[in-house]
Design a protein around this nucleic acid. Structure first.
Length: 326
DNA sequence: GGGCGATGACAAG
DNA sequence: TTGTCCTCGCCCA
């Protein structure tokens, strides 16, 4: 589920708490046992994201390549709190037991970021949405559910579940993967990335709605950002890449660069900054309805009132306003 | 307790 | 274009 911004945040998390540390690697589930054995006991030397791909580098140029796919997730625990939880709602231990309270969705109290340091013993789930839970008995915690890979240091643990890809590669293989990817605004030089995206889009007769999802054209955009970027540009998803002017594609790249930056900073897909303040607050209040068009089929367009349309495109849901976007 | 959908990406045909 | 894989949470009974 994570689009590019989440993967960059995950890379940052590894950079903070794992890079420079010796890592015990295992596969509680068993399906990654061979790969885990290759990196077990090595030191993590780098963590980087390119588009939706995560590359964790270990001693002697061995890389763990992870792609979360549509519902993969990393669960961090230990000394991994990214920010204070002092304002987190004081929960009680639920009557139903098990679940520790004091959980919050990251980003809902961004103004608390500056206060206090990281709490020890935290759980942090990084998936399509991030949730942080303070309080954790025992370290390391027992793996819960289907954990494909576990990376453990003296003070932090990362559990990987449900990935589309999890494999150990050498430097050449990593380069081949990266060579097949379109530009990522946080990796590539902005002008060079812009040039590449413009060239790749305008050389194709494929609809722009599909090109934005094509990771060889531009990296990191998924179904939410696709819909939102096209609306922000007031662009009909069906227009072919070859029909778009250089300027229009350049603006798509620049808007993606902007949105990705916001997403990495906040941990949320905030796409409605164009809305006036009051309307924005209203929309943000409802988690399920905080975008211009994504998941708003049948609801009135926030600009013109036309019902938002949902259609299937390459087996994915495409949302747009038939009036604003043409 | 079952079914279904999800912010992906493939391969097969 | 369709099927397949990966896992979990939510909805409904």
């Amino acid at each position: 589920m994570p689009e590019g911004h989440s993967v960059h945040r995950i890379a940052r998390q590894f950079d903070r708490h794992f890079v420079g540390e010796r890592v015990a690697a295992s596969s509680p589930q068993g399906r990654f046992a061979d790969g885990a054995a290759l990196i077990d006991g090595r030191t993590m030397t780098d963590a980087k994201a390119v588009g939706k791909q995560l590359f964790l580098e270990f001693d002697e140029a061995l890389y763990l390549r992870v792609h979360l796919g549509i519902y993969g997730a990393w669960d961090f625990a230990g000394d991994v709190g990214r920010d204070a939880t002092t304002r987190a709602s004081r929960g009680r231990m639920g009557q139903t037991g098990m679940r520790q309270a004091d959980t919050r969705v990251v980003g809902e109290h961004e103004d608390s970021l500056s206060s206090i340091g990281a709490p020890r013993r935290t759980r942090l789930r990084m998936a399509e949405q991030e949730t942080e839970t303070a309080g954790l008995e025992g370290f390391p915690p027992e793996p819960v559910g289907q954990v494909r890979a576990r990376l453990l240091t003296d003070s932090a643990v990362a559990d990987l579940r449900g990935p589309t890809a999890c494999e150990v590669l050498d430097a050449e293989a990593v380069q081949r993967v990266i060579d097949g990817l379109g530009p990522d605004p946080l990796v590539d030089d902005p002008d060079e990335g812009e040039r590449r995206m413009v060239e790749r889009v305008r050389s194709r007769r494929t609809p722009i709605g599909l090109l934005l999802m094509d990771q060889s054209v531009v990296s990191g955009i998924g179904n939410v950002y696709r819909a939102e970027i096209l609306f922000r540009a007031r662009l009909d998803p069906h227009i072919r890449g070859s029909e778009l002017s250089e300027e229009v594609v350049r603006d798509l790249w620049r808007d993606w660069r902007y949105l990705l930056g916001v997403g990495v900073d906040t941990g949320q897909m905030l796409t409605m900054d164009g809305l006036d303040e009051e309307a924005r607050k209203l929309a943000l209040r409802n988690r399920a309805d905080r975008h211009w068009v994504y998941k708003r089929e049948g609801l009135p367009c926030r600009i013109c009132g036309t019902h938002i349309v949902l259609e299937m495109a390459a087996a994915r849901k495409l949302y747009y306003c038939p009036t604003c976007q043409r």
